[in-house]
C-alpha cells in the first residue's frame, strides 16, 4: 500500500504536466492550421475593411493618396442623382426579388418533396441552373430575351403577341432581371427541402387524426416549422440582392442602360472606384450600403422573435 502510494504520487503531477503541455500543443497546432485562414482574414478582409472606412473620408484615388475631407463624400452622395437612382433600382430589385424567391423557393421545395418516382432527377434539374456561372447565365438570357430572335419573343409570337424589347426597354429591364435571377434559386430550394424533411411526420399524423385538410396542415404545420429556414433565406437573400452586380453589369456592358434603369448600387460604386478614380467616394458608398444591410438585418432579427418558430420551443 505504502509502496504503491509512493509510486503513484510522483506520477500524478507528471501526468498533469503532460496533459497541460498537450493542451498547449493542441492550441498551437490549431492556430497553425488555422493560420492560412487567419492571415487571409486579416490581409484580405479586416485591413481593407478598416482602410476603406478611412478612405471614405478622403479623396483617395488608388494611384493618388488624396487628402482628408471629413464627411464631404457622404455629403456629395446625398445630392448625387445617379446615387439615388441606383438606390431606387436596387431597392426595386430587392423588394420584388426576395419575396418572389421565397414564394417560388418554398413552392418548388414542396413540389420536389412529393413522393414521386424519379424525384432525384427533378431535384437535379432544378438545381442545375445554380451551377451556371453568372456571366454565362447573363449571355444565355440575353439570347433568350433577344427581341428579334429570342426564344421568349418567338414563343410570344406564336400566340400572337409582339413581345417587348425586354432588356432594351425601360419598363421591362428590371422585371427581366428578376425573372432570370429567379431561374437560379436552386440553392435556396435545397435548403427549404432540408427544412421540410426536418418536420416530424408525427405532426401530420396528429393533424390527420384531427381531420385537418391539406391547407390546414400547410398553414399550421409546414409553414410555421419552415420559418427558421425562411428566416435564413430572407436574410441571405436581402444581403445578396443588395449586392446585385454581375448580371446587370455583363448585360449592359457596365453602362446600366436603358436610361439608367439597370444601374445598380454596386455597379455605380464600382464605376466610381475603378473608372473615375474616386475610390474615396466609392468607399463611402460601400459603407452606406453596409449600414443599410446591417439595419435591415437587425430589423429582421428583431422581428424574428414574433414569427420564427423553432421546433422544441
Amino acid at each position: 500500500m505504502l509502496k504503491e502510494k509512493v509510486v503513484s504520487e510522483p506520477i500524478f503531477p507528471q501526468a498533469k504536466a503532460k496533459k497541460n503541455k498537450k493542451l498547449g500543443d493542441d492550441a498551437l497546432y490549431g492556430w497553425l492550421f488555422a493560420s492560412p485562414w487567419v492571415i487571409g482574414l486579416l490581409v484580405f478582409f479586416l485591413i481593407p475593411l478598416v482602410s476603406s472606412l478611412y478612405f471614405s473620408l478622403t479623396t483617395y484615388g488608388i494611384l493618388q493618396p488624396g487628402e482628408f475631407v471629413g464627411f464631404q463624400n457622404y455629403k456629395d452622395l446625398m445630392s448625387d442623382t445617379v446615387f439615388w437612382k441606383s438606390i431606387y433600382n436596387t431597392v426595386y430589385f430587392v423588394v420584388f426579388f426576395v419575396p418572389l424567391s421565397i414564394f417560388f423557393g418554398v413552392g418548388l421545395a414542396m413540389l420536389l418533396n412529393m413522393k414521386v418516382k424519379g424525384m432525384s432527377v427533378y431535384r437535379t434539374i432544378f438545381f442545375l441552373p445554380t451551377l451556371v456561372p453568372s456571366v454565362a447565365m447573363a449571355v444565355l438570357w440575353m439570347w433568350l430575351l433577344n427581341p428579334g430572335f429570342g426564344l421568349v419573343n418567338g414563343m410570344l409570337d406564336v400566340i400572337g403577341i409582339q413581345g417587348p424589347a425586354w432588356l432594351g426597354s425601360e419598363t421591362w429591364s428590371k422585371p427581366s432581371l428578376i425573372m432570370m435571377s429567379l431561374w437560379g434559386i436552386g440553392q435556396s430550394v435545397v435548403i427549404y427541402l432540408a427544412g421540410l424533411n426536418d418536420i416530424p411526420q408525427d405532426y401530420y399524423e396528429a393533424g390527420d387524426i384531427d381531420g385537418a385538410n391539406w391547407f390546414d396542415k400547410m398553414r399550421s404545420i409546414t409553414l410555421p416549422l419552415l420559418t427558421p429556414v425562411i428566416f435564413f433565406n430572407l436574410v441571405m437573400g436581402i444581403i445578396g440582392a443588395f449586392q446585385q452586380f454581375t448580371l446587370p453589369y455583363t448585360m449592359t456592358g457596365g453602362r446600366g442602360t436603358p436610361a439608367d434603369s439597370m444601374k445598380f448600387y454596386v455597379m455605380y460604386l464600382y464605376d466610381n472606384g475603378f473608372k473615375f478614380f474616386k475610390m474615396g467616394y466609392a468607399s463611402a458608398m460601400a459603407w452606406i450600403l453596409f449600414v443599410i444591410v446591417i439595419a435591415l438585418t437587425g430589423i429582421i432579427f428583431y422581428t424574428s422573435k414574433k414569427w420564427v418558430h423553432y421546433q422544441g420551443e
Binding site: 433577344n146 428579334g148 417587348p164 424589347a165 432594351g168 426597354s169
Partner: peptide, 11 residues
C-alpha cells in the same frame, strides 16, 4: 419609338 429601335439594335 425608342423601344422599337431598342428591340432592333439589341438584336
Amino acid at each position: 419609338n425608342i423601344e422599337d429601335i431598342a428591340s432592333f439594335t439589341d438584336s
